[in-house]
């Protein structure tokens, strides 16, 4: 793992009117590393991701890219750096086919004209290497299922060969097998040396693929844990902000019952 993180946030703060959404947040992501970003609803996960993706410019703090400070003021800045974001609402065009969606905004051209043949060939190649199965690359997105749309959206983010991929709850709406496919995909991204930020509510997914877990609570850092040496309970207590909470109480109760 490289010494300099691909992306580092130093003391990032963000306000929306009277709401302090992020306060002094620190985050580091290295190449070939999957960092899970967890936290309760409203903890600031989505806001943090949007500041990195350039949707909401930060108010205070520094975003470092490969060790040097950069300004990320609009989505284009983030894209140029090599940051690809897959949002929860997938942002695909229903009326355009899979190939067209994969290459939307970065069409391959031959003599100034769209090169459909080359785009279709590369689309198939990409979907094959990611083991993505969809009925056809020439059907409109409207005819795909939710899981198929998710993998198309992730595949789409891979086309620009990004250094950092941000996945916002990629498995939230998926079935068992498709969740496994997406997690496989995340591991393949790591093997290829991409840095990955994974937002998830699902601790099983986090334990399965993440290297580090960064916990946000009420817009502040609440610990960064190594997944291999940290128990699920520790992470959950960091998320909820106390060792004494609904989850631990329930666990204690179940343990007590089991011991009887």
């Amino acid at each position: 793992m490289s010494a300099t993180p691909v992306l580092a946030l130093r003391g990032v703060s963000k306000r929306f009117g009277a709401v302090q959404a992020l306060t002094d947040v620190e985050l580091e992501v290295h190449a070939g590393e999957v960092v899970a970003l967890v936290g309760d609803n409203g903890a600031g996960k989505s806001t943090l991701v949007k500041t990195i993706a350039g949707v909401h410019p930060i108010d205070e703090g520094v975003i470092e890219w490969n060790g040097s400070a950069v300004a990320v003021n609009k989505p284009h800045d983030a894209q140029n750096l090599g940051i690809a974001t897959v949002y929860q609402d997938l942002a695909l065009c229903d009326n355009i086919d899979v190939v067209g969606n994969l290459f939307l905004g970065r069409e391959i051209k031959r003599r100034g004209v769209l090169d459909e043949v080359e785009m279709e060939r590369r689309a198939r190649e990409l979907l094959d290497t990611l083991s993505i199965r969809i009925p056809s690359v020439r059907i409109p997105i409207a005819s795909l299922s939710g899981g198929q749309r998710q993998v198309v959206a992730i595949a789409r983010s891979m086309l620009g060969e990004p250094r950092l991929v941000i996945l916002d709850e990629p498995t939230a709406a998926l079935g068992v097998e498709q969740t496994a496919q997406v997690l496989d995909l995340v591991e393949r991204l790591r093997e290829r040396g991409h840095a990955v930020i994974l937002i998830s509510h699902n601790m099983a997914d986090v334990k399965a693929v993440a290297d580090k877990v960064a916990v946000l609570r009420l817009g502040r850092n609440n610990g960064v844990f190594d997944v291999r040496t940290t128990s699920q309970e520790e992470i959950i207590s960091a998320i909820t902000g106390a060792t004494e909470n609904a989850v631990t109480r329930r666990a204690a109760r179940t343990n007590a019952e089991a011991q009887k």
């Binding site: 989505p75 949002y87 609402d89 065009c93 009326n95 939307l104 970065r106 069409e107 769209l114």
Partner: peptide, 24 residues
């Protein structure tokens, strides 16, 4: 149908948000 400009028009008709995020 054959230029990226036309593709942008179709994309805007499909989803404005998706088009904006695609850098259109």
């Amino acid at each position: 149908r054959r230029t990226s400009y036309g593709r942008k028009i179709l994309a805007l008709g499909g989803s404005v948000e998706a088009s904006r995020r695609a850098g259109i």
